[in-house]
Design a protein around this nucleic acid. Sequence first.
DNA 1: TGGTCATATCCAATCGATTGGGGAAGACGG
DNA 2: CCGTCTTCCCCAATCGATTGGATATGACCA
Lengths: 349, 349
Amino acid sequence: MARKDQRNSPGKVVLLRDVARRAGVDTSTASRVLRGDERKPAKQETRERILTAAREMGYHVNSVARSLRTRQREAIGLIIPDAANPGFAEIFRGVQSVTDVAGWHVIVMEDRPDHRQELGWDRLVLEGRVDGVLVLTATIRDKLVRGVADSGFPIVLMNRRSTGVPGSVVMNDPKGSEVAVSHFVKLGHRRIAHVAGPSNVDTGQRRLAGFRDAMKARGLPVRDEWIVYTNYTEAAGEVAARELLAKAGNDMPTAIYCASFLSGIGLIKALNEAGYSVPRDISVIVSDELALAAHTSPPLTTIRMHLSRMGEVGARMLLDRLAGKPVSAIVIPEMPELVIRGSTAPPRA
Amino acid sequence: MARKDQRNSPGKVVLLRDVARRAGVDTSTASRVLRGDERKPAKQETRERILTAAREMGYHVNSVARSLRTRQREAIGLIIPDAANPGFAEIFRGVQSVTDVAGWHVIVMEDRPDHRQELGWDRLVLEGRVDGVLVLTATIRDKLVRGVADSGFPIVLMNRRSTGVPGSVVMNDPKGSEVAVSHFVKLGHRRIAHVAGPSNVDTGQRRLAGFRDAMKARGLPVRDEWIVYTNYTEAAGEVAARELLAKAGNDMPTAIYCASFLSGIGLIKALNEAGYSVPRDISVIVSDELALAAHTSPPLTTIRMHLSRMGEVGARMLLDRLAGKPVSAIVIPEMPELVIRGSTAPPRA
DNA sequence: TGGTCATATCCAATCGATTGGGGAAGACGG
DNA sequence: CCGTCTTCCCCAATCGATTGGATATGACCA
């Protein structure tokens, strides 16, 4: 009674044994038929009786009981740094497109390192709530990630890599930098700065490395005072702009490749406040193509990074791992594409 | 062996009975102590022995086994229409802030009515994967929602209401319309249009009703050709603009209150393409204050709707319901606030 | 010393589905 | 008619923790 009040009490729940009884068979037979287990086939006529009974009674397997027995949760964890980052939605969709057809579920957990709970995302793992995790928050040496990976628990990193963790999916970040630099040079820029991601994050490192390579390949100097680091927030973009202004003084670059969308917005805002107009005085390209890029002021020239593809590939890899296949380190083959809008222009004469 | 390869194989999993054996007690005693169940207290010394053993062995309860016995999943479902809608992140954070301290988990499922899977979100319920659901996608007569609610399953609607479903949390939408109209009138507008939400969605209806009331209270006419409906996407906003242009002809309004952020962006884009400048020719206020509103062109004047608060209140209500308390229909008491930016101005003389 | 009670533990059933082993019924050959 | 082999189905153990009821231990009093 108390239970009926507190709990869901969907009338009465139909159990496997109810179906079996109605069909006049044992629960084991019913179970095999309903799951399509062919190792011990049932007579066609029996099969139909069971299927009909299940349908008529509205039977649905109790996933808890099944999980206890099979030791499979049919659920994965998706650990994200920041649900407010617009790129997340795209990644999430990629993940869900794969998990949906497989009939798996996604437990989303935001794990903001700044106010990390006493209970981190690893409790998903420790309590056995998920069969595997997709982690978007890994730093290069991440104790939590390393611990989980070392225990043998299925884990795939996305958009990040971490030492000692074999499964990962990242985008072709260096190529993105190359595309950005190439476009700047084509416009006539030679004085190019880079607002990089956090230095303890693999993605940031790879974009920076790609930037250095692209510059070097064109014989352009990479100046220390034109490299600043930021995380992936708007506020950090403003800070980065001020840092750049302070370090560069009168010797400002004419173009900036910014490794994050939100930072780019803050960056432009602070540049405007300091009297620099974009793209008249300084051109800006930001990484990650999002719907909103077309509507900012000025509209942003971006590097499209195929985030949803990354989500798909990551989820696929994790599910394959759960089916016994080994994981690997994948770079999304799709090439980053330049989307030209209003934040880039030739340098002033 | 095969199992070890396929499954997580975290070395060896520590079970309750391992802890009990090490502490020299029965599993039942260990269980009670570890859960802090005081109904059958254990001796202080026994308690400590168990706690120490659990800590030393790194014991974590197996949530599947626990759930099977207690019939509680300690997980809720969050059903959203569109992960790409920036407002979602704010709502999600509100929800998570509540579930985190309660130690509950959130299974997020995107349920796009346009390409709805054969398996809808209700399988979360039918398979018993969650104890309750927070639904953001309800239409006014929603068969799925109604079915789940009628079965007695704990459900709380957010930002929507649906006939026959008692639990809901909505924002003060009419007041939002009132604030928008009030601002327009203060600027000198009298010819005001409304781009409304879908007519089969409660939120849209209430914003529209609030709009009508606010207009009537000021003796202003609500003209049919100045009311158009849209869903919450950018593309729909463009369509709405074209529809408005077609219906109004030369007799265009000087101000538009748009019930959705993304639609507003599309709306302004299409207005610009038709030769109307915002805010010179037409002022626009959009609902929902988001970080990006400050960076669009022009920056958007918005109505701040306290989305994260709604997430908190909704999650709280659902958790209370799961603890036995009844649900109710709540309107978030925080008042919508006007955030003035560049998309509004006095009408042209 | 024996009886009554409270306290601290232990025993065993239970949650619902899965799955290896065994048994009944029927087909077939000798 | 009996033995052997399939085919089909049932029995019962199992997954790991929770919880009501039973039991042992000791305190206390007569």
